[in-house]
Computed example of a mutant assay.
Amino acid sequence: MTDHWIVRLACAAALMFGVAVADAAEGAKTLQAGNDLSDRASLQRGAQLYMNYCSGCHALKYLRYSRMAADLGLSEEEVMNNLNFTGTPVGEPIPVTMPKAQAEKWFGKMPPDLSLIARVRGSDWVYTYLKSFYLDPTRPLGWNNTVFPNASMPNPLWEMQGLQHAVHGKPENPGEDPPVVGLKIAQPGNMDPGQYDQAVRDITNFLEYAGEPAALKRQKLGVWVILFLALLTFLAYLLKKEYWKDVH
């Protein structure tokens, strides 16, 4: 038993170290997403934004349309008419819109499924990533990202955010490329910064939900579980007093 616990602790430490190394390698400080799974309106907006701007390249193979409808307070008809662009049956997982052949032609491979991206990377990482694209003429698609350098995708939300340019600092050593020390909007989008932050927060909120849909029900049940445990503790205290009253 002791050996098993040692192995588990070692694995957990290795995982945390690996995540820390990965974040350090990608080199950007993440922002606080501030998303809230209990905000149903945010989840609904996030689903709409995801389906319109992200589902063309990224699937959610662990989330079904029917489950999304039930969890987000939408009817299956609303989901199928407004959020389903592939004609996939309501009981099936959410596929990618773009055909595989075109994805391989344009990007070299199929873009990754995003069902678990918020669980793997964290909501703060997703939120910061969507705010950190900038124009980079040296990249094949003309875009780069400070959180995920040399990302092989353009900014899908550029119309809302606008076009960002990198602000470069001085290189630490001669011959090195100047580091990106900040980002600056060069051409505004159709949203102001506050509106865009909320849009990204909504998408992040939806992706956190997609990674673990049961979390919504677990949070609701948690209150009742705590109340039950409090009542059980009180009854156990009364029972203890009854058993020990003659002793005292």
Rank of each mutant, 00 (worst) to 15 (best):
M1G: 14
M1F: 06
D3P: 07
D3K: 02
V7L: 09
R8A: 01
L9M: 08
A10G: 11
C11K: 14
C11F: 14
A13W: 10
G18D: 12
V19Y: 12
V19T: 12
V21H: 03
A22N: 15
A22Y: 15
A24E: 13
A28H: 15
T30G: 04
Q32I: 06
G34Y: 00
D36P: 08
D39E: 10
G46D: 04
A47C: 07
Q48W: 00
Y50N: 00
M51S: 01
A59C: 08
L60S: 06
Y65W: 14
S66L: 06
L72R: 07
E77P: 06
V79S: 06
L83R: 11
N84T: 10
G87C: 08
G87V: 00
I94H: 00
P95V: 02
P99C: 02
Q102D: 05
F107L: 06
F107C: 03
K109D: 11
M110C: 11
P111Q: 07
P112T: 01
D113L: 09
L114W: 01
L114T: 05
L116N: 11
R119A: 09
R119Y: 14
V120C: 11
R121M: 12
R121T: 08
D124F: 09
Y127W: 01
K131T: 11
D136T: 12
W143S: 08
N145W: 10
N145Y: 09
T146D: 09
N150L: 12
P154M: 06
P154Q: 07
N155I: 09
L157K: 09
M160H: 14
G162R: 05
Q164C: 07
P171C: 04
P171F: 04
E176D: 15
V181M: 00
L183S: 08
G189K: 05
A199I: 08
A199K: 07
V200R: 10
D202F: 03
D202A: 00
N205M: 06
L207T: 10
A210K: 01
E212T: 03
K217T: 10
R218L: 05
Q219N: 08
I226S: 13
L231C: 13
L231Q: 11
L232V: 06
L235E: 15
A236H: 02
L239H: 02
L239W: 04
K241W: 13
W244T: 15
K245R: 11
